[in-house]
Amino acid sequence: MKKTKTIGCEEALKHLLAYLDQELGSAKRRELEQHIEICRSCFSRAEFEKLLKTQLREAGREMVGASLEKRIKTLLGRF
């Protein structure tokens, strides 16, 4: 079994956003996940940032009105 380096809170927080963006390499990701499992404060922080990110995504969702869809289709029809 591969040993995972243990990291502290400071290191964990430094990489947290990249982790939530799924931009962390697998070694770093394992270190961070292990830290989050044992550290209540970083766990709560991760949950918080994750929820905020989800809420932002939901808030950014827009439905195109019928008028824009028609406008774009007319536009495309002329190409």
Partner: peptide, 20 residues
């Protein structure tokens, strides 16, 4: 043109959301 149209219509909500 029809494949372009299909892709654009599929992304319209996202494009509009970002534009907003």
């Amino acid at each position: 043109r029809s494949s372009f149209e299909e892709k654009v219509i599929g992304l319209l909500d996202q494009l509009f959301g970002a534009a907003m």
